[in-house]
Design a binder for these strands. Structure first.
Ligand SMILES: [Mn+2]
Ligand SMILES: [Mn+2]
Ligand SMILES: [Zn+2]
Ligand SMILES: [Zn+2]
Lengths: 159, 159
DNA sequence: ATTGGTAATGAAAACCATTTTCAATAAGGA
DNA sequence: TCCTTATTGAAAATGGTTTTCATTACCAAT
């Protein structure tokens, strides 16, 4: 997969879509920003460099990027959908998160792919056979309490 | 955990909540129905035996049951939140789904808990240490194509 | 370069699941 | 039975996302 600057240009054209200014700006924001942005956050950031952008266009562009497997969509339960640029193919196949129940912070964790592989292949094989279900991707969510929130609870208990 | 009929009565009272008719009816629907119902589906089913029920009450009751760890809430991306009664404690700690990308059907899979345990304990320990994150529960989603939809695609290709 | 067909855009309105408001009701301790 | 107050249901509000539609601007063909 080509990873140079503006690698997504040819990608978009390859899907038969037009390479417009709004789309370029949105992709730039996605590739530069921290992860798991909402449509409104993306719109706000793009607005600083391209004020004419409409929130509608952000939503539409994101859907196009999703159908082109360039962006993933998540709902972590805070009332807004969140989006993340796919940096490498592996992230599309397996993508995992730590989610803090207190502050709703999301931590990406991609590291355990090595050990994971054997385990998951076995599980997938088992499930595929049992349910005759063709598994394409998977993601695990670990819910709990992040370091900061744990500390705050401790501090509170001390008073 | 007590599992007799109406085991949830004492459970609700135990949380200092009143045991009302709407709440009993909602719990009966949840315990009898198929899984992953939306608020509206629950409201509709309760309505058949208790017509006065309001959708608002369904939402409020579900939130109460969630805070009492009797119900789990999921968002599979079809525009409505889905709810499921927790039948056993294990389901709360680890809960897994097969999700069809074509028809959005959800299949519960709880079976691989035995093998899973060793793998996941190791992963959890690793992640907890690395991110100083206290993991309470986890859930895995396997996305793909279900048996029925696979068949339909094949049939379509044959024509 | 210029042109023309049409995909893409943005403002406004519509949509719709969920939440809030508030007066009426009923659970359950005294 | 009485009384306090948690709970309820209808209606209205909320807010993220989608639809509508007239305008704009890609870009392939000229
Ligand atoms: Mn992520
Ligand atoms: Mn389930
Ligand atoms: Zn936190
Ligand atoms: Zn299917």
């Amino acid at each position: 997969m080509p990873r140079g600057p503006h690698w997504f240009h040819r990608r978009i054209r390859g899907y038969g879509c037009r390479l417009t200014l709004p789309r370029q700006r949105i992709l730039e924001v996605l590739s530069r920003s921290s992860k798991h942005l909402s449509a409104e956050e993306i719109s706000h950031r793009v607005h600083q460099v391209y004020p004419a952008i409409g929130l509608t266009t952000v939503y539409r562009t994101l859907e196009m990027l999703i159908s082109g497997a360039m962006v993933m969509k998540f709902d972590f339960g805070d009332g807004r959908t969140r989006y993340e640029l796919i940096k490498d193919q592996g992230a599309l196949i397996s993508h995992h998160h730590l989610i803090c129940r207190v502050c709703l912070k999301i931590i990406d964790c991609a590291e355990f792919t090595g050990y994971e592989r054997g385990y998951l292949e076995s599980i997938k094989k088992k499930l595929s056979k049992k349910y005759k279900f063709e598994i394409r991707e998977h993601q695990t969510r670990f819910y709990g309490v992040c370091e900061k929130c744990k500390k705050e609870v401790t501090d509170y208990a001390k008073r």
